[in-house]
């Protein structure tokens, strides 16, 4: 059953990816990338990574789609057709892809219990989380406590991104009081 779900989801992912690449209308591409994110979230649920799945669904499919649509509101909505076929970028992309696939070949088989990553700090997190932090969800305790420093860095990244966008786009432009009728964005 899991195998069937996996095959179905990965096939759909591939179909959506091809559709995004071939799509000239940016509006359709944005919606398709939202669909891609939802499919990815489903894949992550199948992989038992519910926290990541929730993030993918809310950020990838939700906020990203909305922000990209808001961007489309400001710019042209069709991708301009390239004049001639590009050979070099094609080779770069195929080469990078081949390298990535080659890299996965030497990875330990997925899901085996005696992988190196499962032997270092993971047993301590699994055994001692409740004793040490009183929080049953190991993901939360690792994110906020054991690896709190990393999460502080992540929060700072969000902060920096927000400040950057506000400085670039926000701009304290005084709105004129007249002629505002609550028009939807």
């Amino acid at each position: 059953m899991i195998a069937f779900i996996n095959v179905a989801l990965l096939t759909l992912l591939a179909v959506v990816t091809v559709a995004i690449v071939r799509q000239r209308s940016l509006f359709a591409a944005v919606i398709l990338s939202g669909i891609y994110s939802f499919l990815m979230a489903s894949v992550l649920i199948v992989l038992d990574a519910v926290d990541v799945a929730m993030t993918e669904a809310s950020v990838g499919a939700g906020i990203s789609t909305v922000v990209l649509l808001a961007t489309l509101h400001l710019i042209k909505t069709t991708e301009s057709r390239s004049v001639r076929p590009r050979i070099l970028p094609m080779f770069v992309v195929l080469g990078t892809g081949a390298f990535l696939v080659w890299g996965t070949l030497v990875m330990p088989p997925y899901g085996t219990a005696d992988n190196i990553i499962h032997k270092h700090v993971v047993p301590r997190y699994i055994n001692d989380t409740i004793k040490e932090t009183g929080v049953p969800n190991i993901v939360t305790s690792v994110l906020a406590d054991y690896r709190g420093y990393d999460t502080l860095g992540e929060t700072t990244v969000i902060f920096t991104a927000g400040i950057g966008v506000m400085l670039l786009l926000g701009g304290r432009r005084r709105r004129t009081k007249s002629g505002q009728d609550g028009r939807s964005p």
């Binding site: 906020i63 808001a70 509101h73 927000g162 670039l168 786009l169 926000g170 709105r175 964005p185």
Partner: peptide, 15 residues
Amino acid sequence: GTMTSLFYAFAERGR
């Protein structure tokens, strides 16, 4: 805060 002000920044720009 970041996500909301991000949206505001884009939406206000489009007015």
